[in-house]
């Protein structure tokens, strides 16, 4: 465990909690892509099946359970409790265009052709693109609430910090996982445009709105 890994995990946790609290406090999921949240719930479910097969540490187990629990709680709030506020018309990204290719790729390119390993690989590939329905929704409506941008920033920062973690682990532990690294780079790159808008607009006190 190095500082990049720990801050990455905490940034990820912060993103998840920010989103849950935003929805809970405002009693509304306006501007949030339910499709992205379903994809994240699917990501955690397929990745953390090793909870049943191997114990790594108390930290590891607790974080996995928190991530999964929060992901399903978020989906529940969007599609059940505050369904009336869900902006389904703007959440029109076709998720099958992500899930099907990602499923095919995880069967083709993986470390080991076993069910758990393929599901883990699927979760890594899917996570890298799971935010696209949310970014698509923002590009469609042309704006995002400031709290939503904080959520996206923490979520993007998490994978960027993991990149530094992998550089660290490569130099000091000789550890690298090519599947995670390539997917992590793709994931981080998808946030670059948003990072730019976040720094140039949101951090200067302006609302994030895209030019028409």
């Amino acid at each position: 465990m190095n500082i990049f890994r720990l801050t990455g995990d905490l940034s990820h946790l912060a993103a998840i909690i920010i989103l849950l609290l935003k929805i809970w406090k405002s009693r509304s999921c306006a501007g949030i892509s339910g499709k992205s949240q379903i994809l994240f719930a699917l990501v955690f479910t397929t990745r953390y099946l090793d909870l049943f097969t191997s114990f790594i540490s108390l930290y590891n187990t607790c974080m996995k359970l928190i991530y999964i629990g929060c992901a399903y709680a978020t989906v529940y709030l969007i599609y059940a409790k505050f369904r009336a506020t869900y902006d389904g018309n703007h959440d029109s990204f076709r998720v099958e265009f992500l899930v099907v290719p990602v499923g095919g790729l995880s069967v083709l390119i993986n470390h080991d052709f076993s069910p758990l390993e393929i599901l883990w690989t699927f979760s890594i590939y899917l996570e890298s693109v799971a935010i696209l329905p949310q970014l698509f929704m923002i590009s469609k409506t042309g704006e995002a609430e400031t709290i939503t941008t904080h959520y996206l920033f923490c979520l993007g920062l998490y994978r960027a910090l993991y990149l530094f973690n992998w550089i660290w682990r490569f130099y000091f532990e000789g550890f690298f996982d090519m599947i995670a690294i390539v997917a992590g780079v793709v994931q981080t790159v998808l946030y670059c445009d948003f990072f730019y808008l976040y720094v140039t607009k949101v951090l200067k006190g302006k609302k994030l709105s895209l030019p028409a």
Partner: peptide, 10 residues
């Protein structure tokens, strides 16, 4: 490569 080792990252 970490093939075969338990995955310790989240």
């Amino acid at each position: 490569d970490n093939n075969g080792k338990p995955k310790d990252e989240l």
